[in-house]
């Protein structure tokens, strides 16, 4: 070991190169967000860069823009209900996939994970065609069904990951000590896989809240969600109110992630 150290060059060119690479990667990831942030305070008449002056007028506009407020309400209602449903469905499915051996296991697994692999525009088109005769277009039920379909893979994945690292003998120990199946689930299994369940829930909430394609196809005219409203707004007017809205949304997501991280350790769950 000491010999190897002797021949180590004093200057390692890989080190600064790596630093620059990391910096560029972060820049690449964060640049769009930074630009939106800057633009939201710019006094330019139209959405453009660089800024010509400083203003808060876009932020002042937001509460009066009823389309945004309505869209926000629809999106929040949808996201909350979707999160509840997707957890209630996804966690039992993950448990079944982890704990039981059955014939169609591989098929069931691919079925539940397939929405991740299919382009959402294809899904959206299929849903419009399916929901038409069922009178589900432009209803909460329609949007929620669509969002549940695309978010359930996340919940199943994160829950399966938590389950894979748990010691099943904990459950056996609880049963021997007198706990019935439901008690074992509520008092042992669920608390142990909680990080995965919460991570799945947070991802499902954010994905649903953010979802544009399915919402656009299924409910553009009757029940526009926030992303749909943003899209419409940008089509019709080109001012920076959208940028201000984006900054608010970024801050809200950040707040959710930070609160969950502080409370439950989301980072641990996502690792």
């Amino acid at each position: 070991m000491s010999e190897a150290r002797l021949f180590k060059p004093r200057f390692n060119p890989a080190k600064p190169a790596f630093g620059i690479l990391v910096f560029l990667l972060y820049l690449f990831l964060l640049a769009p967000l930074l630009i939106v942030f800057v633009v939201s305070f710019a006094s330019n008449q139209y959405l453009s860069f660089p800024p010509e002056g400083l203003t808060f007028k876009w932020y002042e506009m937001l509460p009066e823009e009823s389309t945004f407020m309505n869209g926000m309400r629809v999106s929040l209602i949808v996201a909350v209900i979707v999160t509840v449903i997707v957890l209630a469905l996804g966690v039992p499915v993950a448990l079944a996939l982890d704990r039981f051996e059955f014939k169609a296991k591989a098929a069931v697994q691919s079925f539940f994970l397939s929405p991740l692999l299919i382009p959402s525009i294809v899904l959206a088109l299929g849903m419009v065609l399916l929901f038409g005769p069922l009178n589900l277009n432009n209803t909460y039920t329609g949007i929620i069904i669509g969002h549940v379909a695309i978010t359930i893979p996340f919940v199943i994945r994160t829950t399966l990951m938590s389950l894979a690292t748990t010691d099943t003998s904990c459950e056996a120990a609880a049963r021997i000590l007198g706990a019935g199946s439901w008690t074992v689930f509520r008092r042992i299994t669920l608390p142990i896989i909680q990080p995965g369940v919460i991570a799945g829930g947070v991802i499902a909430f954010i994905v649903s809240f953010d979802e544009a394609v399915i919402s656009l196809f299924v409910a553009e005219s009757g029940l526009p969600t926030l992303p749909v409203q943003v899209l419409r707004y940008v089509e019709n007017s080109a001012d920076a109110a959208v940028a201000a809205l984006s900054v608010i949304l970024i801050l809200i997501s950040l707040a959710v992630v930070v609160v969950v991280e502080r409370a439950m350790g989301l980072r641990k769950a996502l690792r």
Partner: peptide
């Protein structure tokens, strides 16, 4: 199993981590 009134110690101890 939960009506047998037994006690068991597992190789991994299986303590409830939470």
């Amino acid at each position: 199993v939960n009506k047998r009134g037994m006690g068991m110690v597992f190789q991994s101890y299986a303590l409830f981590p939470h």
